[in-house]
């Protein structure tokens, strides 16, 4: 479903954010991307939806060759993905309802369909009662959940989440991760970049660990810390 082959990325200012990264993610996988801040997790995700193009290597998403994709084809690629951005990226002049609806409108969805799907998505993240408010009137956690609802509303085949629980309290975090787990059960491929140890250790999914723009480990049922569960740290 997602495949990176020898991908390197150097930003215009000379920062080498990714260094010959290769990664295969199959259909229906649930993958955590972990690693220190500034290690290249967001950069890797940005390449998947072609906010940036790699300086070297091949990026293939859902059978589409993303690294050489023509400008005019980029919107179509993004419509097949659900993306939760680290900084939410909500439209500040639209209500929460409109923000979520917008992701459907750009796909050309019929208004009837939008009216059916938007409340459902907002309900899933527990924001139905705030749908008429503007992003500025919501707490950080609520904005994050609105961003998640927008990513889910098109029932994407692939869900890319950059720190989706960074602003959530433990209970909300658990609820959102359970939601992602259920969506994954229905066959959606999910990639989550996170610093949240509790989440990673509780879910016990595939963990891809990065350091200085490289992938250093890739475990099938991993923990946040290499080989260690939370309990082991506490008891040790």
């Amino acid at each position: 479903m997602i495949s990176l082959r020898g991908v390197s990325l150097t930003y215009a200012n000379g920062v080498r954010a990714l260094d010959s990264v290769s990664l295969e993610i199959g259909k229906g996988d649930f993958v955590f991307l972990v690693g220190h801040s500034g290690t290249g997790k967001s950069s890797l995700l940005r390449m998947l939806y072609r906010e940036i193009a790699p300086t070297q290597g091949e990026v293939i998403v859902d059978g589409i060759r993303v690294d050489t994709l023509r400008q005019s084809r980029i919107p179509a690629l993004r419509r097949h993905l659900g993306i939760v951005f680290q900084d939410f990226k909500l439209l500040s002049e639209k209500t929460i309802w409109e923000n979520v609806a917008f992701a459907m409108q750009v796909t050309g969805a019929h208004t009837k369909e939008i009216i059916r799907q938007v409340p459902r998505a907002l309900d899933l993240v527990g924001l139905a009662h705030k749908s008429r408010m503007y992003p500025g009137e919501l707490s950080g956690g609520e904005q994050q959940r609105a961003a998640i609802a927008r990513a889910l509303v098109n029932n994407p085949k692939i869900l890319l989440c950059d720190e989706p629980t960074g602003n959530l309290d433990p209970q909300n975090t658990t609820e959102i991760m359970d939601l992602l787990g259920r969506i994954n059960l229905k066959g959606t491929t999910i990639v989550v970049a996170t610093h949240n140890q509790a989440v990673v250790d509780r879910m016990r999914r595939r963990v891809v660990r990065m350091e200085d723009g490289r992938i250093i480990t890739d475990e099938e049922r991993g923990y946040y810390y290499l080989g260690l569960g939370q309990g082991q740290i506490l008891s040790g």
Binding site: E51, R78, L91, S92, V106
Partner: peptide, 15 residues
């Protein structure tokens, strides 16, 4: 900023 966000959620240039 709004335009950039619209592009990120998949809006075409024409849209």
């Amino acid at each position: 900023r709004e335009i950039a966000i619209m592009q990120l959620v998949g809006a075409t240039n024409l849209y």
